[in-house]
Amino acid sequence: MKKGRKLYDSAFKSKAVALSNERANISELARELGIKVTLLYKWRKEHEKFGEGSFPGNGTLKLTPEQEKIRLLEKQLKDAELERDILKKGNQHFFQERSMKYRFIKNHEHEFPIEKMCEVLEVHSSSYYKWKARPASKRALMKDKIKQQITSIYFASKQRYGSPRITAELNAMGYKISRVTVAKYMKELGLRSKLSKKFKVTTDSKHNYLIVDNVLNRNFAPTEPSQVWVSDITYIQTKEGFVYLTSLIDLYDRKMIGWSLSNTMSTADTTLAAWRMAIKNRPVKKGLIFHSDQGVQYATKKFTNVLESYGVIRSMSRKGNCWDNAVAESFFKSLKTELIYGNKLVTKEQMKIDVFEYIEIWYNKKRRHRALNYKTIEEFNNQNQFYKNVA
C-alpha cells in the first residue's frame, strides 16, 4: 500500500520558516525537523513573497508591493545585525581560556588578520607566536582537543548541559573520559550549566468536577509505549503577558508527544489541544493510563468525555502533592531552566518559536535524559528495539 504524503499545518510551516531565519545551516534544520530541505526552501520562498499572508490553506492572502518592500528591508537589517553579533558573541562566551583563544586564532588565520584577532581577543601577538612555535605534547594536544569538544557541546546545548550530560555526549563520540575530569575541565574553562529556580503552580483544583484516584501511584517506569501518559500545565512570562504551556509525555521514553502553547487556560486551548496532537503522534492502546493533577482543565466534562471515548483509565495526583506527577513537573523545571531563566523577556510570538524549537528539536531529539541513562530518546528506543529483535 502506498504511503500517504505527510501534511503540515500552517502553524508548523510558519514556525519552521521563522526558525530557519535564525539558523545558518538550513539543511541541518530540515533534517532535525524531519522534512526535505527543498520543502523548507519552498516554504521560505512563499513566506518571502507573501509574509503573513502565506500558508493560508484555502485563502488567498497576499501582501502589497509596499508591504513586501518593507518586509525585505527588515529581513536585510536582521541579517546585518546577526553578522555583526557573531564575533561579539564568540568573544563573550567561547574564549574564556587563553589556550582556547590561541587555538581560535590558529584555526582562522586564513580568514582574518592575526593582529586583528589578537586585538579583539585581548592577547599579545608575540605571546601567540611563542605559543604557536612551542611543540605540544600528545597529552596536552588531547586535553586541548577535549576542551574544544566540551566547549562546543556546552554551547550547542545553549549552556543547558552540565558535566554528566557532556560526559555522556563525549563517550558517545568515542572519548573515554570520566565525569570528574569533565567537571574539572569545565571549571578551568569557566563553564557552568544553567541553575534552576522555583516557580509557581498553575493548578486550579477548586471546582465541583469529579476527582479520580491516583491509579498511577508513582509507577514511573512502564515497559511499553502508550502504557502511561502524563500531563501538566504551567505559565511562561513574556513581554506581552503570560502564555500557558500544556505538556503530554509518554512515560516510557519521556517523549513529548503532545503539547500546546496558548494565551488562555481554557480546556479547548490546553488539554484538548495537547491531546489531539498526542493521538496523532502515538496510538492509544488498551489500558492506557492518563495521569494529571486535579486541575479543572483535566476534570471538566468536555475533556473527561474525550478520554472515556478512547477507553482511557484516568488517574490524578493527590491534592497538593507534586511528587505524584514528578515527571511532568521535572519537564517544566528543565524547560524553564534551560530556555527561560536568565534570558530577556520576548514577545508571545517569539516564545512560541522558542518553545517549538526546544521541544521538537532539542528535547525530543537531541537532549540526553537522565531517566534514560543519559541517552537521547532515539538512542533509547533503538537500543530497546534491538534487544527485542535479538530476544
Rank of each mutant, 00 (worst) to 15 (best):
S315I: 02
R71C: 03
Q159F: 04
E308Y: 09
H124R: 14
S315C: 07
K36N: 15
R139N: 15
H108L: 05
E357S: 04
I114D: 13
R314D: 09
K319N: 01
F386L: 07
E97I: 09
S334C: 05
D85M: 04
R192V: 12
D253R: 05
E74Y: 14
H207W: 10
D232F: 00
R44P: 05
I377A: 08
I233D: 15
T167A: 06
V123L: 00
S247L: 02
R5A: 08
I257W: 02
E48S: 08
S266R: 07
Y363H: 11
E360W: 08
M265C: 03
N325R: 10
R103E: 08
F50W: 13
A299E: 08
I177K: 06
A221T: 12
S262L: 04
A268H: 12
A16S: 09
E224K: 14
K147I: 06
R84C: 05
L82S: 15
S163L: 02
T337H: 06
I105F: 06
V327P: 12
W362Y: 13
T267P: 04
Y209T: 01
R254A: 08
K106Q: 15
N21P: 09
P283G: 07
H110F: 15
E308D: 13
A24K: 05
H124P: 06
L63K: 00
T270S: 07
M1G: 09
T304R: 14
S127V: 05
N281F: 11
G4R: 14
F155C: 07
K194P: 00
K89Q: 15
Y185E: 07
R282Q: 13
R84F: 14
L248N: 01
L251G: 02
G241P: 09
P56E: 10
A136R: 12
H207F: 03
K36M: 06
Q297M: 01
S127W: 11
S10F: 07
Y298E: 06
C118N: 02
L335P: 09
K138W: 14
H108R: 06
E32N: 11
S309Y: 08
N373V: 09
I166P: 01
Q227Y: 09
H110T: 14
R192A: 11
V228L: 00
E97S: 00
E111H: 14
K13C: 04
Y129D: 03
K366P: 10
K15H: 14
I313D: 10
L141F: 11
I289A: 04
M256T: 12
E52I: 13
I313G: 02
K319W: 10
Q350E: 13
I86F: 14
L251C: 00
I105G: 05
L191M: 05
V312K: 04
F12C: 06
K62R: 15
Q67R: 10
S262C: 00
F356A: 00
Q149S: 08
A278F: 14
L39Y: 14
N107D: 12
T234G: 01
